[in-house]
Design a protein around this nucleic acid. Structure first.
Lengths: 219, 219
DNA sequence: GCGCGTATTGACACTCGGTGACAGCAGCGA
DNA sequence: TCGCTGCTGTCACCGAGTGTCAATACGCGC
């Protein structure tokens, strides 16, 4: 994801690039084997051997078998939060959240040749899907915290940020499932549009602050 | 959960009750040990031995270590869908869904002496939470199907049922987390009320048929 | 009461995911 | 060149989960 090779940083000293190389090799070998033979039919020994390292080394790079796959989409969580943080503070939550979701998703869909098989593998493999959902829960907490900061809310009492983050990720999930189910045919941006059309009334109906004031969101 | 012992069914022949007994013993032993020592610190051998059976027998009753715990809340999914199906067809989705969530949750909170520790264990243990989310995803699909039936929608094109089910379970999850975090102090019904107050605008803004509503938020 | 099919169980062996410990080896600065 | 550091492979190990098999207990027809 990060293209450090381009900028001629002096301190990516050999060892670091070596490490990155092993990691990439491992990821590539894992994704290929898993997508080809199915999650349960591939042992970690196979993956490691295919990447030219030992099983022990595999676990020095990834915490679990699920991790290799889910890690592939891991950065998206950070991207979503970063995207939200980058939106104008005054922007309505629905718009900010929609962009925060849509941009990384579009970026993912842009390399659909690599991303689509991974997404399909995740959505079809219960163990992977469970881990994916677990990670989404972390994203939800992150997004919620970001919303609390943006809107100056009280996280301990207000249910809005958590629900809003949940709804946004719900839209993300639905779009991802449709996109994967259509083998990449359907347009992710359009799907996100439609999903947010459903949840927008709730996102925008929020009444700011602790007071039960009816102040409409800035628009 | 099911009280078959009361009705004098002739065909609950000994073997069946024996099986139920072992299952209960296993569940009880597992929940006690896991809540006491933590999920990872307890081996299946311990649980099985505590219940007076072999490790092999444990796996004849539960598919995994996570399953013993999550199974304890498994029926709630069916209850939620049944509750939704039992609501008047003409009732607004927000009201029907709120009842469908609130009733089983209240039933759960009624035996908080048993349920609370289990819920806290699940929410605090990543592996368990992941499995719980996985199960919730199934509930979401079930609820979605029920909504499609109730509202006579087209499941293949309309994102509303899936999003609505997701939002409802989002409310469920948020309420559960608050309830667990407050050690059972907060009132689940009130939490559900507040959560549904957030999502209701979206649930009610649905416009029947295939036309996707892109209207501005109410107000 | 007696034999027989069926279901349940414990014991054993095995695979695989995952971890700790240790020794060997490459890079890099003094 | 020495020594330090980080990465690696090997080995031993534990626990989750599964297949197999013999033994046992239940239910049923006789």
């Amino acid at each position: 994801m990060y293209d450090e090779a381009m900028s001629s940083r002096p301190h990516v000293s050999l060892a670091q690039r070596k490490r990155q190389l092993v990691s990439d090799e491992l990821t590539q070998a894992a994704l290929q084997l898993l997508a080809q033979k199915g999650f349960d039919a591939v042992t970690i020994d196979e993956i490691a051997t295919a990447a030219g390292v030992s099983k022990r080394t595999f676990f020095r790079y990834f915490a679990s078998k699920e991790d290799v796959v889910v890690q592939f989409l891991a950065d998206m969580g950070n991207d979503i939060r970063a995207e939200l943080a980058a939106r104008p503070t005054k922007e309505r939550p629905s718009v900010a959240l929609q962009h925060a979701i849509a941009v990384p998703l579009a970026a993912c869909a842009d390399h659909s040749d690599r991303a689509l098989p991974v997404v399909q593998l995740i959505l079809r493999t219960p163990a992977l899907y469970a881990r994916f959902l677990e990670r989404q829960a972390q994203w939800r907490d992150d997004l919620s915290a970001e919303l609390v900061a943006r809107l100056d809310l009280d996280a301990d009492t207000d249910l809005y940020p958590r629900m809003a983050a949940g709804m946004a990720l719900n839209a993300f999930d639905a779009a991802l499932q449709r996109w994967s189910g259509s083998d990449g045919t359907e347009d992710p941006a359009a799907l996100i549009d439609r999903a947010f059309a459903v949840i927008a009334p709730a996102l925008n109906a929020w009444r700011g602050g602790k007071s039960a004031g009816l102040a409409a969101p800035p628009g």
